[in-house]
């Protein structure tokens, strides 16, 4: 088995220690670190994403896989030459004001990164102002936001209103347990994703590129 496949497998199997050893081996044996990230770690995370989508994996498994992946990523990333990794576009992501549940957002972020997007993470409890300002400054292709709580859905609506005015070119996607297509339509978001898989498909679709 190729070392990249071993890396991918270790990520899928949630084995952080093994990922660490493999990453060191990658550097030892002179494999290009960016390729190891793309063909090893990222492929592993994509498989994790697939397992998550078909409900073989759930949040705990994804978190543990991600931690394993980051173990390798933190070893390999410093060795990568700038510009070697593909960039499908920038996505700005955050959990809206009032909500501190960021697991879903983190998973979506991880998977989008693994798919080749550049992610700017605003974190959780992001105010309408902060979110709008960041979009204006960063000029991302997509602004993505989520909430897990029904109580904070209206901040989403406020952000959409502001972005439509201040950054009309940005595409807006939303997700999270309490929202749905009906809600997305009603507030004027461009895309609603029910799960991480749809988020990836949606991001490609919004930018008119192939996955």
């Amino acid at each position: 088995m190729h070392i990249y496949d071993k890396l991918a497998k270790a990520v899928v199997e949630m084995k952080a220690a093994e990922v660490k050893l493999l990453a060191l081996q990658v550097l030892d044996e002179g494999f290009p670190p960016d390729e190891a990230i793309q063909k090893g770690l990222a492929v592993g995370m994509q498989e994790v994403g697939r397992l998550f989508s078909c409900k073989d994996y759930f949040v705990p498994e994804v978190l543990v896989s991600a931690r394993a992946m980051y173990t390798g990523f933190n070893i390999l990333k410093p060795k990568v030459i700038e510009g070697a990794v593909a960039d499908k576009g920038t996505i700005l992501i955050g959990v809206v004001e009032g909500d501190y549940h960021d697991i879903g957002k983190n998973i979506v972020k991880l998977m989008l990164e693994a798919s080749g997007f550049r992610l700017v993470d605003l974190g959780k409890n992001v105010s309408v102002d902060a979110f709008t300002r960041a979009v204006v400054e960063e000029k991302p292709a997509i602004a993505a936001m989520s909430t897990l709580m029904t109580t904070t859905m209206d901040s989403m609506e406020e952000i959409v209103v502001r972005l439509t005015k201040d950054a009309p070119e940005v595409k807006i996607m939303i997700g999270g347990a309490p929202v749905n297509q009906d809600f997305a339509d009603s507030i004027g978001a461009h895309f609603y994703g029910d799960d991480v898989d749809q988020a990836i498909v949606g991001a490609h679709k919004l930018l008119g590129i192939k996955a």
Partner: peptide, 10 residues
């Protein structure tokens, strides 16, 4: 679904 109770729900 709680969002049905929001003013914005269509």
């Amino acid at each position: 679904a709680p969002h049905n109770l929001m003013a914005s729900s269509g």
